[in-house]
Amino acid sequence: MTKRKPIKKAVFPVAGLGTRFLPATKVVPKEMLPIVDRPLIQYAVDEAREAGIEQMIFVTGRGKTAIIDHFDIAFELEATLREREKALAILEPTHAVPGHIIAVRQQVPLGLGHAIWCARAIVGDEPFAIFLPDELMIGSPGCMKQMVDAYDDVGGNLISVLEVPREDVSSYGVIDPGAALPGFDGRLTEVKGLIEKPPIEQAPSNKIISGRYILQPEVMRTLENQEKGAGGEIQLTDAMARMIGTQPFHAVTFAGRRFDCGSKLGFVEATLALALEREDMGTDVRAMAQRLLRE
């Protein structure tokens, strides 16, 4: 049996302009907006680390340097905290091993597929993960850890999926599901096809791609010669669809919760949900919410 290469690299496409959150995102990257007290990008990186991923590749755009700075050592801040005998442990997750954070620039916004392709030189000839930080995935273990565990069993390409109401499918990439693999309690399904943002009547299922992927490096060669798709952009979904039939492709149904933090409503929902679960504030937040609902 051929030993599979471990998943040690992850690509984070973070070059978007965040126009739905203007004016908040005029100078602050949307990935740095906090859910309670951690920015969105931190949740994604923590999830990657839990899954054993070591190298984080950020595909950035102009004005996104704050994302890289977040994972640097803030010497003045940490020195001040140390002098004041303040706990520094809270900053530990923001520290990166030298060489484990890499940034590449997507100079022109040509779509998600193009953003992933921009990381091709760093990914090299290895399987890799993709995280869309807008998709906040909360579970134990995390979504990517669940996917890596499945990858260890079946290899190939995997995508995370969730079921949504049928009327919402045209906003997402949708899978055409095949047979469920035995021994996985229905969590692992063959993928027969992928469609990006289909009309409701043409959607093959209500299972949407939910922002986490494990892909083989051949996808980079597919993206290199790919034409534009939905929205006039180079779509990652189209590239993956072209690979089906040439390599194993499976969907992992995530056992956890997803928050669409690319929308204002989803962002507020995530903030409230996570605040309610916090031991240091959950009771107070619940009381505050109840008071506001009464007013």
Score class of each variant (00 low, 15 high):
I159S: 03
G156V: 10
E167Q: 13
V191T: 04
S160T: 12
T246C: 05
V169M: 09
A203F: 06
E224R: 09
G178S: 07
V191E: 00
M220H: 08
P198M: 01
E227I: 09
K192S: 01
P217C: 02
R212L: 03
N157H: 13
S210R: 02
S205N: 08
P198L: 03
Q247I: 12
V191P: 02
K207H: 11
V191Y: 01
D153T: 13
T246H: 13
S205F: 10
I244E: 07
P198K: 03
V164C: 09
E163F: 08
Q235W: 00
S205D: 05
G211M: 03
D153I: 12
L194V: 15
P182A: 08
I159P: 00
V161S: 02
M243C: 10
F184N: 01
Y213H: 11
N206A: 12
F249T: 06
V164P: 11
L223W: 01
M243L: 15
G232K: 05
G186I: 09
E167R: 13
Y213N: 02
A241T: 04
K228C: 11
G245Y: 03
I175P: 07
E196T: 14
I200T: 15
E196A: 12
M220G: 01
I234Y: 06
A239Q: 05
L194D: 04
I208G: 03
E233K: 14
D153Y: 12
R221N: 12
A241P: 06
P199I: 01
V154E: 05
Q202L: 14
A203V: 07
G186P: 11
E224W: 09
V161W: 07
S171F: 15
P198G: 06
E190I: 10
S171W: 12
V161Y: 01
V219C: 06
Q226L: 15
L162N: 05
L158C: 06
E190Y: 01
E224S: 12
G155D: 08
F249C: 07
G211K: 02
G211H: 04
D176K: 14
L194P: 10
F184I: 08
M240F: 06
A180E: 13
A179I: 12
A203H: 05
G186E: 06
L236S: 04
E196I: 11
P204L: 06
Q235L: 13
G186W: 09
L181S: 05
Q216M: 10
G183H: 13
P217W: 06
E218T: 07
V219H: 07
P182V: 05
K207D: 04
A180W: 00
R187G: 01
I214M: 02
G232H: 06
D168L: 15
E196K: 14
R166N: 09
P248Y: 13
G186Y: 09
R187W: 05
Q226M: 13
D153H: 14
D185T: 09
K228S: 07
V174I: 11
N206W: 04
L188C: 04
M240S: 02
L215R: 03
R221Q: 11
R187D: 10
D153V: 14
S171D: 12
Q202I: 00
E167L: 09
L236H: 07
T189D: 01
I209A: 08
A179K: 14
Q216K: 09
V154T: 08
M220Y: 07
A239P: 11
M220T: 00
